[in-house]
Nucleic acid binder design. Structure first.
Lengths: 225, 225
DNA sequence: GGCGGGCCTAACGGATCCTTAACGGCAGGG
DNA sequence: CCCTGCCGTTAAGGATCCGTTAGGCCCGCC
């Protein structure tokens, strides 16, 4: 079964789309805003995303950019805005097609078939770790948050890399110190605390209550995806 | 070089399209009817076809179907007909996108980029890399800026080539040094800084604020298309 | 031999980054 | 209640790294 995610804040249109798609044989999941759309995209195996640009919480283009940081799923954009600038912006952000409202259901389904046909035969694995707040691309050595690149210093990156490569696993102070600074610096100092504070300031939404870079008192740190 | 075939029976529109595409860095071949279009498609290595449906000899949809019997090249359809039936027919015949006249050149180029981006996943890495400021032709060993060729020394080219072949990926100093000068020269000196300055002076519009040849302090460099 | 292009070295201002120290919050134990 | 670890945060110094320029060396070419 082909999974399709439909994102629209209009419940009426959402119901119509869901019905039309399901009668055409697709498995449909829905979302009503950008936040929940990105979350749903991480949890379901999707073959295509239909995205309305006019969302209540996040700008639709931002949703595309964030999605594109870790996924290549085809994105078909729906929008009431029909200027060239809007279309160019969405397409260059990573969308695959742009359909202006009002549209006929036949055309939507045809464009959907075209996209699915084109992307039917590719699925390369991606060395990208993603959380709801930031994404880490190990291969490209790059970390971004809310669509924007985050600049990390060499030591910050090294620490983050070690933690991210061992999700949910507890890494001791000693291991981090020797891996980053070398065996000579294995004795505890407060380098680590300083850099963890830096990392959290750059990546965590609430520095006081970290959600992904957790500390295990007296032992070490842990990365929670 | 990214080859694009443009098929249209209106010589005026054809000339406009050809010019717009060439200034964007594509290699354009043209055809004025369906017969010659199918012939041209067999003879040139193409990355994309832009096809006007209103041709004098063969019906456009038939052209798509015939083309699809042996080629998977992305097809972007132009047409004055804007009914759902026309779009569905063309898309289901094998077209990848359907753009109704009149259209803005910006939108056409954006949709073209979207199609090329999608189909680039299957093919080996592109022989031509284009940025808004300069283009690099890996195959022909040439780089041009604002239409004019840029003279690069052998070492400058080697550095640029390595960076461009790994878009957005961070390349460490060590890797650049060993790849360009050999393993013996892996120890840091400042050749690299000198040559990066040279490259930026030749390619970047604002040397002080590089937009494509980015430096990652303490680690290496990154090419941003 | 003169000449020019390409490559390496040296040096300096400026930006970035690492280290260190100091302070406050928090919990547990005396 | 105070004392003591442990952690998080901030700020400032000094060290390191980067970009840039200038000059000298080497080699091929006129």
């Amino acid at each position: 079964m082909t999974g399709v995610l439909v994102v629209d804040d209009d419940p009426h249109l959402l119901r119509i789309l869901k019905l039309a798609l399901e009668t055409s044989g697709y498995a449909v999941t829905t979302a009503v805003d950008g936040r929940s759309a990105l979350l749903a995209a991480t949890q379901n195996p999707l073959a295509l995303v239909i995205l309305d640009l006019g969302l209540p919480d996040i700008d639709g283009v931002t949703v595309i950019k964030e999605l594109r940081e870790w996924s290549r799923v085809p994105v078909l954009v729906l929008s009431a805005r029909h200027t060239s600038e809007d279309k160019v912006e969405a397409l260059d952000a990573g969308a695959d097609d742009y359909l202006t409202k009002p549209f006929g259901p036949d055309e939507l389904l045809a464009r959907l078939r075209a996209l699915l046909r084109r992307s039917a035969d590719l699925q390369p694995p991606e060395p990208v770790v993603v959380t709801e707040n930031f994404t880490v691309d190990l291969a490209k050595h790059r970390v971004s948050r809310e669509g924007a690149d985050v600049r990390l210093t060499p030591i910050e990156w090294k620490i983050l890399e070690i933690l991210v490569r061992n999700p949910e696993k507890l890494i001791t102070h000693r291991q981090l110190l020797t891996d980053v600074w070398g065996p000579a610096y294995a004795k505890d100092s407060n380098y680590l605390r300083v850099f963890m504070a830096q990392l959290r300031r750059k990546l965590e939404p609430d520095t006081g209550n970290p959600r992904h870079l957790l500390t295990e008192a007296g032992i070490g740190y842990r990365f929670q995806p």
